[in-house]
């Protein structure tokens, strides 16, 4: 007996989605990173073309250095966006979706306590999210040396682990919303708005000194605000992100145990 049957079942049901997201994130990472050698001339043009305010907003310090290029392409917007969309949709599948489409009754009739049920559903989803969020790490570990980008692999690892921690943070939040409300729309809307709002908070804090304090409210600051590709590991920040994920997940499990299901 390897894994509990419900964990295996949940993973099986998520398999197609996970393959899709993994392929998408992998393709995105590979294509953008792979363009680096052709891009070097164009980067200068692009950096000059974009106003400084826009660069600050996107969190792009410079596009010319290898670290700056990776930051601007993989880590600034689309990378986290893809990973978070995956995290939110997979989290919505743990409880909210089956509760809405009726599949919940037969799942919940499994001989498991409510807490064990929620934990097993979340475990399967969190593993899937982690696999998707780890794709950039796996690929960059290969690509960065292969195309001779001058970024220490330890710094790449720090940024990539940050992406995983960011994904955990929002997986926990999305799970909590679904566990409490049982509504898929709530999961997508509340987590989506929170992600956009905190992204904006971090972006605005880059643009204006007066708004600098906003960054402390944003998971995106703890993920990328310290520029890990240049500065390396910031374990406190990563632990904080993971901690938010774990705390919201535990809250979700406790609250799911206390409510009516499927009404």
């Amino acid at each position: 007996m390897l894994l509990p049957p419900l964990v295996r079942k949940t993973s099986r049901d998520d398999r197609r989605a996970v393959i899709g997201w993994t392929a998408g994130v992998a393709a995105f990472t590979t294509i953008y990173t792979g363009f680096y050698s052709q891009f070097q001339g164009a980067a200068e043009l692009k950096q000059n073309a974009l106003p400084q305010g826009m660069l600050d907003f996107l969190g792009i310090a410079d596009m010319l250095s290898p670290a700056g290029y990776l930051q601007a392409t993989v880590f600034s917007l689309i990378g986290p966006l893809l990973v978070l969309m995956c995290a939110v949709t997979l989290s919505a599948r743990t409880i909210a979706r089956p509760e809405e489409d009726g599949g919940m009754e037969l799942l919940l009739a499994n001989p498991l306590s409510r807490k064990a049920f929620a934990t097993q559903r979340l475990t399967a989803a969190a593993v899937a999210v982690t696999v998707v969020a780890a794709m950039p790490w796996i690929l960059l570990s290969i690509l960065v040396p292969a195309i001779a980008m001058d970024v220490p692999l330890s710094n790449v690892a720090a940024a990539c682990v940050g992406l995983i921690a960011l994904a955990w943070c929002f997986t926990g939040i999305a799970f909590l919303v679904g566990a409490v409300s049982g509504k898929r729309g709530n999961v997508l809307a509340i987590t989506g708005v929170l992600a956009v709002a905190t992204y904006m908070a971090n972006a605005l804090s880059n643009m204006s000194e007066g708004l600098g304090w906003l960054k402390w409210l944003s998971p995106f600051y703890y993920f990328i605000g310290t520029d890990p590709l240049h500065t390396g590991w910031h374990p406190g920040h990563l632990l904080l992100l993971a901690g938010i994920g774990v705390a919201t997940a535990i809250a979700g499990i406790i609250l799911f145990d206390r409510r009516d299901v499927g009404v």
């Binding site: 599949g103 009754e105 499994n110």
Partner: peptide, 18 residues
């Protein structure tokens, strides 16, 4: 619940399969 549901066979009224 965990012990009990092993001894219960349940057919929901509105059947949907995961």
């Amino acid at each position: 619940k965990a012990v009990l549901h092993r001894q219960i066979g349940y057919l929901p009224g509105e059947l949907a399969f995961p």
